[in-house]
Amino acid sequence: MNTPEIQIKNVGMVYQVNNGEEIVALTDINLDIQEGEFISLLGPSGCGKTTLLRIIADLLQPTSGSVSIRGQSPKEIRMQHKYGIVFQSPVLYDWRTVRRNVCMPMEIMGIPKKERTARITRMLELVGLRDFGNKYPFELSGGMQQRVGIARALALDPEFLLMDEPFSALDEFTREKLNEDLLSIWSKTKKTVIFVTHNIPESVFLSDRVVVLSPHPGRISAIVDIDLPRPRQNSIRETSEFYEHVTKIRRSFEGV
C-alpha cells in the first residue's frame, strides 16, 4: 500500500467545561486514509465525529496527537486551499446568487474573472444546477442548496473534500438522490472524501471504509470495509450484500 494521504496519530480532544470539569470528546484516534478513498465517520451524537473532521480541517486544535496530510499540518493544508468543506447547513450567503456563491472562494483567492466564470459553469454542470445560476438561495429547495454548497467546496479544485453531515437535514428521498449524485461527482473528480454521518445505510452506500465511532469517550470502535462493487446505484440498497453490511455495522454498536 502507498503511504497514506492523511495520517491521524493518537489524536485526543479534551474540552474544559466552565465548572472545571473535563469532557473527553476524542481519545486515542489512529486512522490512515488513502488517496482517493471515500471514508465515512459514523456514530451517534456525541461520539466526536464532527470534532475529528474539524481537527482535520484546522477549525479545531487537538489537545494531543497529530494529523499529517501529505506530510503537512492541517494549517498548512488550509492555507493552501487544499480541501473543500461542506457543512450540515448549506451556509450560503443570502445576498448572493447561486453563481456568486460558488464564485466566493475564487474571489478570495483572486482568480481572474474569466476563469471564474468558466469554472462556475463547470461546477454547476457537475452538481446538476446548470439552469439555476441566477437564482437566490431562498428560491432553491434544501437539496439544491446543499448542491450549491458542494459546488462551492469543489470550486477551488481541492485535493480532498470534508463533509459534515451534509444531507442530514434532508428528507429520505432527497438524501438518497444526493447520495447517488455525490458518488457520480466523486467518480468524476477522484478526490479523497471524508464524510461524517449518523446514518448507517448512507455510510455503507457511499464509502470504501466506514469508521465507526462510539461515545464517552469518543473513540474508534470498528473500521468496516465496504467491498460492494462500484459504480453504485440506489438499486444496490435492495441487495442482500448491502443489507449484510448495514447489519454488521449496526451490530458493532450493540456491543458498545
Binding site: 480541517a57 484546522d58 477549525l59 488550509r78 492555507m79 493552501q80 486551499h81 480541501y83 468543506i85 457543512f87 450540515q88 447547513s89 451556509v91 450567503y93 445576498w95 466566493m104 472562494p105 474571489e107 478570495i108 483567492m109 477551488l156
Partner: peptide
Amino acid sequence: DQKDLLFSIAANKFKIYQKLMFPF
C-alpha cells in the same frame, strides 16, 4: 459556520468583513 467557511479557505480579516460581515 459562515465564518468557518471563510476561515477554511484562509480568508483574512479584511476579506471576512468585506465578503461576509458587512453584507450580512
